[in-house]
Structure formats: structure tokens, C-alpha cells
Amino acid sequence: MAEKDGFKVLKMGFDEDKVIYVKGETLKKLQHVILGMLSDFIEACKDNNINYSLSGGSILGAVRHQGFIPWDDDVDINISRKDFNKLKKVFPQALGDKYNLYAPEDAKGHGMSLAQMKKKGTVYRSFNELDKEDSGITMDLFVVENTPNNAVLRKLHGMLCLAYGYMLTCRKTYEDLPEIKKYVKEGEALKTFEKKAKIGSFLRFMSLDHLTRRTISIYSLCHNDHSKYVTIPSGRKHYFGEMQERDHLLKVKEVPFETIKANIPEDPVPYLLALYGKTYMEVPPVEKREQHPLMALDLGEGEDK
């Protein structure tokens, strides 16, 4: 979501004649669907005493725009490992009639280290999901993990998380590369995908599902729910770039988000500074605004009209 290093390379790498960048009225309709998903999620969390926060660019949107970043096409969530495990238990009854939940440690063929909630009867197919039948409109759920209090152990844990996260990305890219090539032009982005796929080829002795489960087991090694620091290994800045004091990330407050209210960190400034720098309140120029290249989009019954 929002600005990130290297995004321009990825954006320029896709053949714009073969992908969709959602804009205008279609973007407004997509945001309407996602806002409904977020509202349902929040209601389920309140009913089941589950703590959560908006994540990444959704926090930035709440602070800077009191809702979506105007060009944004998704919502991200942060949720502690303890609360995510609780969510998995209540999800079928609380949200299962309208949504599917994909947890990396459970979902076959998921191949990503983040969890996802997808709306049934919709399609939102990105380059991460080219080989999946179920690619519905998605809320990404980033699990907040405990970290060891001992600095040396924390460093070792972080290095393990970085290694396994990268291996998982490479292993999945190896699986996806034939489909990815249909949409990416020759150039730097394609070379990046090919490099990851080559590394992934050396890991093909492990199934994608096995490596995904192994990655999550590494991420969740620390069981101290009172550790001073927590982190989001599956986040865009990974273990060390996403590390925050526990209260800075998990102590929350409710703020306006479009027509509803949603949780963000009680003091979001340390998080926003870590992810976006001192200029996070400045609206970036058009060329630095992130949008996701999509291969297919279907908003579902009644939403396309």
C-alpha cells in the first residue's frame, strides 16, 4: 500500500496493456466493498474480544486522510499471534458465511507469510495469486510476533526470520514465474523475479506448503506475550524494520476511518516514522503513489453496477 523503496521498478515492470490499475468509479466501488469487509471484521473482533489495529498504509490513511489513501485499493490489519489464534477459532461462525480465512500455517498452496481474509463471490487476482482459484477481494492480516528480550537472541531470531522469509518468497516465485512472465516486460523487474526463481529452484526439494509452515514456526518462536519488543516479520520492512515497543504497536485507540471507526496504535507516530519517514504527512507526487497491478477484478454481485 503506500510509498515504498523499489516500487517504481515493479510498477514499470508490468505491461500496462495486460494488467489493471483500478481508478475512478471502479476504485470507489472497490473501496466500498473493502470498507464493508473491514466493518464486518471489526464487529467480529468486538464480539469476541479480539484486539487488532489497522496496519501500514491504512494507519497512514487514517491519520492523513481519515480513511483510505485516495488512490489505495486495500486495507491491512495488524493482529497479535495470540489474538490471531483466537480469530481462527471463531472465524467460521463469526465471518465464515461471507469470507474465507487463509492462515499460512494452515492453507494449502498459500505460499505467503501473511494471512488473508477474502470475500466470497469476488475476484482480485494479483501477481501473487496467479495460480490460485480463490483470489477474492482481500484484507491482508499481518501477525505481530513476540521477540526475545535478550538482544543477542533477538538478533539471531531476526536473522532466521529474514532468511526463511526470503526463501519462502523465492520458492513461491519459482512456482509462479511462468505465469508472471505473461505480464512482466523485459527489464529490471523481470530480472528480479528470475533471480528469486533461480534461488527458489534450489529449494524445490521442500514443498511450498512445508516451507510456509516452517517459516511461520520460525516467526512465532518467542512465546513471551510480555516481551518488550514485538515485530511483524511478514511486513514490508521485515523483522528489524517493523520492530516496535509492545505498547507502541498493540495499545490502540479508535479513530474515524471513512464512515466507520477503526483501531490504530494509541501513539501512531513511532510506527509511521519507521515505515514512511518524517514526511509521512505529505501527499506524494503521482509517480510515487503505489497501486497494485491486477490481472482480474470482479466486485461481486450488485457491486459492478
Rank of each mutant, 00 (worst) to 15 (best):
K4L: 13
G6I: 05
E16G: 01
E16R: 08
D17C: 05
K18M: 14
K18D: 08
V22C: 05
V22W: 03
G24T: 07
E25V: 02
E25W: 01
T26Y: 00
K28T: 09
N49T: 11
S55M: 05
V63S: 08
F68W: 10
D76M: 12
R81E: 05
L87N: 14
K88L: 00
F91S: 14
P92Q: 12
P92F: 09
L95Q: 09
L95W: 02
K98V: 06
K98Q: 10
K98W: 02
A107D: 10
A115I: 12
N128T: 08
K132I: 15
E133T: 15
F142R: 13
N146A: 09
P148H: 12
P148V: 15
K155T: 12
A163P: 04
A163F: 11
T173Q: 14
L177N: 13
E179Q: 13
I180Q: 00
L190W: 05
K191W: 03
T192R: 15
K195V: 13
I199G: 03
I199Q: 11
S207D: 03
H210A: 15
I216W: 09
I216Q: 11
S217F: 02
Y219W: 08
D225C: 04
S227T: 00
S227K: 02
T231V: 08
G235L: 08
H238F: 12
G241V: 11
G241H: 14
E245N: 11
V255Q: 00
T259Q: 06
I264R: 11
Y276Q: 01
E287S: 10
R289H: 13
L294P: 04
